[in-house]
Amino acid sequence: MDDRIIKLMEQTGLEKPEERIDGIWFASQTIDRQKLADSVHKLELRLSTATCLERGDGEFDVLYHFVHGSLALNIRVTTKNQHLPSLAAFLPSASWIEREMNDLYAVEFDGHPDPRPLVRPAQVPAGFFRKSVAESLLKESEAK
């Protein structure tokens, strides 16, 4: 396994790495955002993006994708009442990603320094990528 992953595990307390064809996957509920941000910055890992997945029970899985060269690192966290602590407070590159996620899935990031809408047009509600909202919006536009 890559040195960076071992160092990252030491510094942030991530455990149980799962190696797959497209990189290393972690799942963690308790990871400290400040430690993670400091650690990835030291190790020159760049935050590629974060993906939001609907779980079906009203909560969301958020996957943080970090990359460095051939190394791809994915960290999965789950929201609690559609809330997550913000990574953007410590890592500027997460700012737009979290703002966009808030627009599309209405996941709230606590402690985000600049929580304005990013891509959402004013006439649609936040979270319009959620299955239920998207379906109803579609029906509405078809009815017109």
Binding site: L118, V119, F128, F129, A134
Partner: peptide, 9 residues
Amino acid sequence: GFVMRSIEL
């Protein structure tokens, strides 16, 4: 956000 087309959706 001026040319958003929701391609992911």
